[in-house]
Design a protein around this nucleic acid. Sequence first.
DNA 1: CATGAATGAGGTTTCATTCAT
DNA 2: TATGAATGAAACCTCATTCAT
Lengths: 206, 206, 206, 206
Amino acid sequence: MRAYSKNEGLISFRRAHIAKCAARVFVKKGYSNTNTRDISEACDMSIGSLYRYVGSKEDILCLVIDLGIQREMAFRKKAFSKSKSLDPVEALKQAMGELIKSVDEIQDLIMFSYRSMQNVEPSARQNIINVDRDIVTEFEKLLIRGCKKGVFEIEHPQMIAQTIIVIAQMWAIRRWAFQKLCTLNEYIDIYTSYILKLICAETPPR
Amino acid sequence: MRAYSKNEGLISFRRAHIAKCAARVFVKKGYSNTNTRDISEACDMSIGSLYRYVGSKEDILCLVIDLGIQREMAFRKKAFSKSKSLDPVEALKQAMGELIKSVDEIQDLIMFSYRSMQNVEPSARQNIINVDRDIVTEFEKLLIRGCKKGVFEIEHPQMIAQTIIVIAQMWAIRRWAFQKLCTLNEYIDIYTSYILKLICAETPPR
Amino acid sequence: MRAYSKNEGLISFRRAHIAKCAARVFVKKGYSNTNTRDISEACDMSIGSLYRYVGSKEDILCLVIDLGIQREMAFRKKAFSKSKSLDPVEALKQAMGELIKSVDEIQDLIMFSYRSMQNVEPSARQNIINVDRDIVTEFEKLLIRGCKKGVFEIEHPQMIAQTIIVIAQMWAIRRWAFQKLCTLNEYIDIYTSYILKLICAETPPR
Amino acid sequence: MRAYSKNEGLISFRRAHIAKCAARVFVKKGYSNTNTRDISEACDMSIGSLYRYVGSKEDILCLVIDLGIQREMAFRKKAFSKSKSLDPVEALKQAMGELIKSVDEIQDLIMFSYRSMQNVEPSARQNIINVDRDIVTEFEKLLIRGCKKGVFEIEHPQMIAQTIIVIAQMWAIRRWAFQKLCTLNEYIDIYTSYILKLICAETPPR
DNA sequence: CATGAATGAGGTTTCATTCAT
DNA sequence: TATGAATGAAACCTCATTCAT
């Protein structure tokens, strides 16, 4: 990503600002329906300044996508930070809750990122997929740990992990359907219980 | 939707052709990245001819979205045609199987439709949502019928119905993840069993 | 003016029809804002048929302009037919009255013709000017005859003749102003009296 | 009228430039026969720059028409500035002289404006008519003042005022006829005398 | 470093004209 | 002879990007 400026600190600072402001417009109007004038106004910068810190409109899209990625990664840290110290069921409950809450917060950005993958080069596309894959992996490890402890009994842990991600994204993608059916917390509770029902080992009758 | 031709039959015929061909390009390049020249080439028509049958590029997008809707509706008929005569478990198995298979066939089109909703007027947008809602309703009725027969035991049938749709769409949205994990038929089997596990009434131990 | 048809009689017949119908649309929407589809609909013919009888859209404009010219010429015959047998004052009154009445009838067409001169080749343009010039000449002859008889006393008969034409066209061009001030007949009476006041020889008081 | 620039001064400056240059091309080729490329070349600007200062081709037409209006209004000030301090006959002579001279200067623009009214929205059309009406009113006031002073004797002052305007416009509309008959100054003298002959009170023989 | 005016390629759409049926 | 579907050049307009100030 080319920039005319030489001041690295300023570049980072301005790019963060651009990403945050551009995200708002992109989410609202879509990438292709947003022009550089819209972006510059949203950023409260001149078009010329904009182009000192990014090389192209596509670069801005990448910044916005990166912003989404960073936010997801920030969540991941939070969601799994204590999971090691908790028993698997509690750890899963907390991780799923945090995941879905994070999706609720940044759902527009996440959905926008997925929609816009087509407009960026494959390498940037890979970043989104990587983050996603990393979160899946974290859940997978959690599930496998539970299996080893005998708490869970799972045939396809990878698919359950995928399913958890989808449940979280579902809250964003189908918000128009779910917001009539339940609140965020009810959603978390219901789907967490579904997952647990699928994976918890049958406790043998004494 | 304006058309300059007066021959209604020809209009329908050409529009169907345009929808089918444009769908291919749109799916591949995205709506905004496809220009009218691309469309005319894909349709093997001149640009002028194109505009005899549609009033604007957005009209073409609507045609493509409608195509997706029609295909989904065709599926619905097929998936639920025999469900009345089958016991709820079999009916659900068949319906879910058909739904996921249909998504597999028209996944690109479906995903494109969802991505492109932003670019069409609210009325066209509503059509997509309506079809979706109708399918959800069919599943809901199936689930409730099962509950009445005592085969299923479901607290939130609407949410299970939503979940089934999401499972189907998941196969499209996350194909890059699932195609490494399982085949289409395995996917159908696994998720059908998950759903059944969630909703089947516990058979009391004798 | 090229035509594909070989049947001369049919050509004349159709061209007359086209001129009459096209005139209506041209007058209403202007030449450039009217497309061949509009014309074909106004003529109740297919576009293909249209082009059997005319060679281009500009040809149709020429036909319409010719129609205006023919109507003006028809008027001229009527207005001046009896002028030879009347005394100059009466002849002038009648001619001016007829001229202004004719302008009232075909004012839209006349105004359209003047506006559209720019769009036709110089030769067609000349035709309009010729008709105009011929009418001016007729009035000039009438005025000079009056001078010779001692009824009129005119320094610049050509300019008075021009003025008469302008008075007639004024009724068309500034109808929005005059229609608030007087009726057609009042207009004729007032301006005829003005002209007579300007040109009638002072009868010396004995 | 939309503009992308925020610098009001520059907008005014460029718009004035565009109006002046576009007027030349419009007058020469007609509005519909002039394309944006012609305009941009006449203005010595790129098409993109053009569209920073106007929203559409029709906007440019409005600018050109406004230019004509401004010039007419500038004239009006000049023509009537001293009319209050002069006796009615002299005032009328001067006003008519100035009016006709102004038409001589801006005749192409005036004629173009009238021809092009069809292509602009009614509101812009009204502006042209308003300016015209104001000039008519000024002459009317002058005529009535003369009547009150007993210098003029006029039955229909409004129609005489209209007639004066038409005489002026006639010099533009029928220049092809009049330029063979007389010079501008002769034209002014002749028609001023005609009007005076029509309206001056008969001085009673002593 | 900041600005925003300038650029012109490329977007969508229209339309006079042709020609197979 | 009559039709109207097909054509593609050319119309109007937008926009990402550059660069003089």
